[in-house]
Amino acid sequence: KLPPGWEKRMSRSSGRVYYFNHITNASQWERPSGNSSSG
């Protein structure tokens, strides 16, 4: 399961899957890690 705020999306241009955070408006190709504590 993804960390809070993150969701899986697909890029229309490349067709690749990326991850988008609707809370911080951040996007990245790598899967966000939800196990590590923020610090």
Rank of each mutant, 00 (worst) to 15 (best):
L2E: 11
S11D: 15
W29A: 04
P3Y: 02
H22K: 11
E30A: 08
S11Q: 14
P3Q: 03
G39T: 10
M10P: 06
H22M: 09
Y18P: 00
S38L: 10
F20C: 05
Y18W: 06
N35V: 11
Y18E: 02
E7S: 07
S33F: 10
P3D: 04
N25F: 11
G5L: 02
G39Q: 13
G39W: 09
G34T: 11
Y19G: 00
S11P: 03
T24E: 03
K1I: 10
S36Y: 08
S27D: 03
R16G: 03
R31E: 09
E7A: 05
S37L: 11
S14C: 14
P4R: 06
Y18Q: 00
G34P: 11
E7Q: 08
Y18I: 02
F20P: 01
Y18V: 01
S13E: 13
A26D: 09
K8V: 14
I23R: 06
L2F: 03
W29E: 05
W6D: 01
N35H: 11
R31I: 10
W29Q: 04
S13I: 13
K8D: 02
S11H: 15
M10Y: 15
Q28H: 03
R16T: 06
S13R: 14
S38H: 10
N35T: 12
R31W: 12
V17P: 09
S27F: 15
R12Y: 14
N35G: 12
Y19R: 00
S37V: 12
M10S: 08
G39S: 11
E30V: 07
S14V: 06
R31P: 12
S14I: 05
K1G: 13
G34W: 15
T24G: 01
E30R: 09
E7H: 09
R12P: 15
Y19N: 00
A26R: 14
R31S: 08
E7D: 04
Y18A: 00
W6M: 00
V17C: 07
G39K: 08
R12C: 15
I23A: 08
W29P: 03
H22L: 12
S13Q: 11
E30Q: 09
V17A: 07
G34Q: 12
S37C: 10
G34S: 12
R31M: 10
G34N: 12
N35Q: 11
P4W: 10
L2I: 05
F20S: 01
N25M: 14
G5Y: 06
N35A: 13
S36P: 12
K1L: 13
H22N: 11
T24H: 03
R31T: 07
K1H: 14
S36N: 10
G34R: 10
S11L: 12
F20M: 02
S37P: 12
S38R: 04
N35R: 07
G39E: 11
R16V: 06
R12E: 15
W29I: 07
N21D: 03
A26T: 15
F20I: 05
S14A: 07
P4N: 08
S33H: 10
P32E: 01
G15R: 07
I23D: 07
K1Y: 11
R31D: 08
T24M: 05
H22A: 09
N21Y: 03
Y19Q: 00
M10Q: 12
M10F: 15
Q28R: 04
F20L: 03
Y19T: 00
G5A: 04
W6G: 00
Y18C: 05
F20G: 00
R16E: 05
S14H: 09
G5F: 06
P4G: 05
S38P: 12
S38V: 12
V17W: 11
R9C: 15
S33P: 08
R12L: 15
W6L: 01
P32L: 02
P32S: 00
W29N: 05
W6Q: 01
S11Y: 10
R9W: 03
E30C: 07
S37K: 06
S37N: 12
E7K: 05
I23S: 06
G34H: 13
I23N: 08
V17H: 08
H22V: 15
S13K: 15
E7Y: 06
S27Q: 08
K8N: 01
G34K: 09
E30P: 05
N35L: 12
E30T: 09
Y19L: 01
G39C: 14
R12Q: 15
S36C: 13
S14R: 06
S27H: 10
P32R: 00
V17F: 10
G5I: 02
R9N: 02
Y18T: 01
G39V: 10
E7I: 09
W6S: 00
G15Y: 04
K8H: 04
S38Q: 10
W6H: 01
Y19K: 00
M10A: 09
W29Y: 09
R9I: 06
S11M: 10
G39L: 10
N21V: 02
T24V: 02
F20K: 03
Y19D: 00
P3W: 03
T24N: 05
I23F: 13
Y19H: 00
G15S: 04
R12T: 15
W6E: 00
M10R: 15
N25P: 00
R12W: 12
L2Y: 03
T24I: 04
A26H: 14
G34I: 13
R16M: 06
P4S: 06
N25V: 04
P4K: 07
K8I: 13
V17Y: 12
R12I: 15
F20H: 08
E30N: 09
E30Y: 07
Y18R: 01
G5W: 05
S11C: 15
S33K: 10
I23L: 12
R31F: 14
Y18L: 02
T24W: 04
W29G: 03
V17K: 03
L2D: 14
S36F: 10
G34A: 11
S38M: 11
K1W: 13
S37W: 10
G15P: 02
W6K: 01
W6T: 00
I23H: 09
A26P: 00
N35D: 12
E7W: 03
S14E: 10
W6Y: 01
S38T: 12
G5N: 07
I23W: 08
A26F: 09
I23Y: 10
I23P: 01
S13P: 14
M10E: 10
K1F: 11
S37M: 10
Y18M: 02
S13G: 13
N35I: 12
P32G: 01
S14P: 05
N21R: 01
F20A: 01
Y18S: 01
N21E: 02
A26Y: 09
L2G: 02
R16P: 01
N35W: 07
R9V: 05
S27V: 15
N35E: 13
V17G: 02
R16K: 11
G34Y: 13
N21A: 01
S37Y: 09
S37I: 12
S13N: 11
K8L: 13
G15L: 05
H22E: 05
N25G: 15
P32D: 00
A26E: 14
S27T: 13
G39P: 11
S37H: 11
R9M: 05
R9L: 05
N35K: 09
G5R: 01
Q28M: 06
R9E: 03
L2H: 02
S14M: 06
P32V: 01
K1V: 12
N25R: 14
S33I: 12
N21P: 00
P4T: 07
S37D: 11
G15T: 03
S27W: 15
L2R: 01
Q28N: 03
G15M: 06
R31N: 08
F20R: 02
W29L: 06
R12N: 14
Y18H: 02
R12D: 14
P3I: 02
M10T: 15
S14K: 07
G34L: 13
S37A: 14
G15K: 08
H22F: 13
Q28E: 03
P3C: 05
P3F: 01
E30M: 07
P4I: 08
E7R: 05
Q28K: 04
M10D: 05
S27P: 03
P32K: 02
P3T: 02
H22S: 11
S27N: 04
G34V: 12
P3K: 02
S27R: 14
R9A: 04
S36K: 08
P4Y: 10
Q28P: 00
Y19A: 00
R9Q: 04
S36D: 12
G15N: 08
V17D: 04
